[in-house]
Amino acid sequence: MAAPPDAESLESRINRATNPLNRDTDWSSIHAFCDQLNNDLEGPQLATRLLAHKIQSPQEWEAMQALLVLETCMKNCGKRFHSEVGKFRFLNELIKVVSPKYLGSRSPEPVKKKVLELIYSWTLGLPEEAKISDAYQMLKKQGIIKQ
């Protein structure tokens, strides 16, 4: 029995939301992705893996759209997603984007700027996610985040 038509996979939704061919932001796909990850049992884990991959894309537009999905889902989703994003397993993928020791030298500047803005905003919005603050302090110590 084929899955009901609206049970599109998280992967196809994120692909649609970050499709480089999109002329402008596809908000309906973004919100559909957030809603779906909230409902699926393993949604948060799969969503963070998919987002990490897209955010590390060398294509600026694709990475920026993935960051917009991440930002939107952090605002709209609940604790399960927050705690998945607040794990080093995911935070490390963001660190790779901004750290010159990893992908930092080839990441587009706007992408690096957006990653740092998001991490900073989460230290204010989600103080209970201690690992996010740890990551932020480490980036400051390494001079990747300017004072």
């Binding site: 794990k87 080093f88 397993r89 935070l91 490390n92 660190i95 740890d134 480490m138």
Partner: peptide, 17 residues
Amino acid sequence: HNGKIEFHDDSDEDLLE
């Protein structure tokens, strides 16, 4: 068995340095 209740947070990696 040291009798101490260990709180096992679900698995995670270490912070990249």
